[in-house]
Design a protein around this nucleic acid. Structure first.
Lengths: 236, 236
DNA sequence: ACCCAATCTGACCAAACGGTCAATTTCGGA
DNA sequence: TCCGAAATTGACCGTTTGGTCAGATTGGGT
């Protein structure tokens, strides 16, 4: 591994579309490897995944994968990194100046949508935590913990203003996370029970609707109808 | 592998306490291996687990493990089998002649208790489904699907009798399963957020209480207080 | 046109792992 | 007591897998 990071001096305006042929090709290969890796790690876990399979799925020789990412573990960490950034950003709508009803239902809808659109990401994350989060101990203890502390403050604020009944905020998030992510992580079980070859959009929306109803009613919040939510969104 | 199944002719009254020394020792070894295997499969997944580690944890030579169970896959299936039997039996309280409120809260309490007492079992099961249930496709499509159909009928019956609001029964179970099992499968994340070295009894009961509250309120059922539930239990 | 660094890749290697086996020991029945 | 089946175990084997490397190729700067 030599100077992969030594930007050549002629690099154009910040990796713009005018990047050199070499750079474009490299970025394309890295992206293909990361996508393939996410899928393979999701399906087989860290130990079950092999760099050979990842390389084949990315249509590259195995040595190429190691040229770009060094070791399987480093590649795995890069895959995790991509997933975590999206994870943390997903709760931005839970702010003190939002309405609890729409904040919760939007958050739940976004989480279920993530399970639908990025099932591999969810599975990689689930697998990592299931096995003790050897790569994420710091992340959980710092970022996620702070995230929950912040959101708990928002919820306490809503409670103080009489907008909802008191709830145990951390446990509320544990439930929301598990219930929404189960549509990605355990899709196999859900498909078997529902007799589906593949989960359909209405399956996801039925799940989101039930989870929302459970959260809102437990918090003593009147449910927001779809049309009212749409109207509210348009007003902004 | 010779006649391990050839019961010796002197076998006493159905494996009773008077089983021969050999038989007792064999059963003890098998049990130790199964327990060790459950733990190792939970921590490392199927591919990450090695028969050497399982053997070490059972304090037996590796060849002994293969003598009893043949292959790693057969051992894994035996571990799964044990887990599934307990899983199916856990919903026995959900019957048409039960009260919805106590049936749900008992079921949720039992599920959370299972997460507390048998976290390894839950993790092995979660790992299997997460990776597409290669060993459980039939089980999910037959036993679990039938289980849900049965319980859905019970719930519809309760709805028809005006005991609760209509809900999407399958999705209700998806939520209950994921929310209760998350206390075993994702304990690592929960511990990080709650700043715990280990989860405490009150953490599990807080989770169970919230899940129960969410389910009951979503079903339009008044909550059963602990004391009332105890009284009801005593009356039986 | 020419050079050199970046990139690419087939071939290879050592370690780890699942599984086997032959040799030995342990028991239970006669 | 003695025999044979069951049980035990250390040593061994073929395969898989993560990772390496030397040599070939490519492309951009001059």
């Amino acid at each position: 591994m030599t100077g992969r990071n030594t930007r050549s001096s002629n690099v154009p305006t910040l990796l713009g579309p005018a990047a050199s042929r070499r750079e474009r090709r490299r970025l394309d290969s890295e992206a293909r490897i990361l996508t393939a890796a996410e899928q393979v790690f999701a399906e087989a876990g860290f130990s079950g995944a092999t760099t050979a399979v990842i390389a084949a799925k990315a249509r590259l020789p195995k040595a190429n994968v190691h040229y770009y990412f060094g070791t399987k573990e480093r590649l795995y960490r890069r895959v995790l990194k991509r997933i975590l950034d999206a994870w943390l950003a997903s709760g931005d709508g839970i702010r003190a100046d939002a309405e609890p009803a729409s904040a919760f239902s939007d958050y739940i809808a976004a989480k279920v949508e993530a399970s639908r659109r990025q099932p591999f990401a969810s599975k990689v994350f689930a697998n990592e935590i299931l096995h003790g989060a050897p790569q994420l101990t710091d992340y959980l203890a710092e970022q996620v913990r702070r995230w929950v502390e912040d959101k708990a403050k928002v919820i306490d604020h809503w409670v103080a203003r009489g907008l909802m009944r008191p709830v145990d905020a951390p446990h509320l998030f544990f439930v929301i996370w598990s219930a929404t992510q189960t549509y990605a992580d355990f899709d196999c079980q859900i498909r078997a029970v529902l007799k589906r070859e593949r989960l359909r959009p209405e399956d996801y929306s039925a799940g989101a609707a039930l989870i929302t109803r459970m959260v809102l009613s437990a918090c003593g919040i009147a449910e927001v109808t779809a049309s009212r939510a749409a109207k509210r969104a348009r007003r902004r």
